[in-house]
C-alpha cells in the first residue's frame, strides 16, 4: 500500500461521511482507476454501508406495542372519560335536587270555610272534655292505688298492734 492508497482510502471514508469536495473526488477517482486493491476496498466499504442501511428491522411484537398503548394512551382516555362522566353525573344530581326543591315546595295554606271552623271548634271542645275526664279518672285511679298499696296495709297492721296492746293490758 502506497501513501496514495492511504490518502485514497481516507478520501473514500470522507466521501462516505458525506463530504463533497470536487478536487478530492477527482483525485480519488483517478487513483481508483489505476489501483485494483483500493478499488476493491472502497467497493467493500460501500457494500458495508449499503448492507447496514438495508439491515432488516426487528419489529417490536404487536402485543408489546398494544401493552404500551394500554398503559398510556388508552388508560389516559379512560381516566378522562371517567372524569367527564363523574362531572356529568354530579351536575345531573345537582340539577335534580334543585328542580325537586322548586317543584315540590308547598304553597300557602288555604283559609278554612266558616262551617268547617265551627265544626273544628266543637270537635276540639269534645276532645278537650274527654281529655279532662281522662285526667280526672287517672287522678282518681292513682289515688286509689296509693291508698291500696300504702294506707291499706298500714290500716291492716293497726288492729294487730291494737290487739296486741289490748292483750298486754289484760290481767
Amino acid at each position: 500500500m502506497t501513501d496514495r492508497c492511504g490518502t485514497a482510502r481516507d478520501l473514500a471514508q470522507r466521501r462516505l461521511d458525506g463530504e463533497r469536495d470536487p478536487a478530492a473526488e477527482a483525485a480519488l477517482n483517478s487513483h481508483l482507476a489505476i489501483c485494483p486493491s483500493c478499488r476493491e476496498i472502497v467497493a467493500g466499504l460501500e457494500t458495508v454501508r449499503e448492507g447496514l442501511r438495508a439491515l432488516p428491522e426487528r419489529p417490536l411484537p404487536g402485543v408489546f406495542l398494544e401493552d404500551i398503548l394500554d398503559r398510556t394512551v388508552r388508560r389516559e382516555r379512560e381516566r378522562v372519560r371517567a372524569a367527564v362522566w363523574a362531572a356529568w353525573a354530579t351536575a345531573a344530581a345537582a340539577a335534580t335536587i334543585v328542580l325537586s326543591l322548586i317543584l315540590i315546595r308547598p304553597g300557602p295554606p288555604e283559609a278554612p270555610a266558616g262551617d268547617e271552623l265551627a265544626r273544628a271548634r266543637r270537635e276540639a271542645g269534645i276532645a278537650l272534655s274527654l281529655a279532662a275526664g281522662a285526667m280526672r279518672e287517672a287522678e282518681r285511679t292513682a289515688r286509689d292505688r296509693v291508698i291500696a298499696e300504702r294506707v291499706a296495709p298500714a290500716l291492716h297492721r293497726v288492729p294487730v298492734r291494737w290487739s296486741a296492746f289490748a292483750a298486754s293490758r289484760k290481767p
Binding site: Q13, E40, G44, E46, V48
Partner: peptide, 15 residues
C-alpha cells in the same frame, strides 16, 4: 467501517 469490511471479506462476502 474498515473492521466490518474486513469481517465481511473474511467471510467471503465481496462486493
Amino acid at each position: 467501517r474498515e473492521k466490518l469490511r474486513e469481517a465481511l471479506a473474511a467471510e467471503g462476502v465481496s462486493p
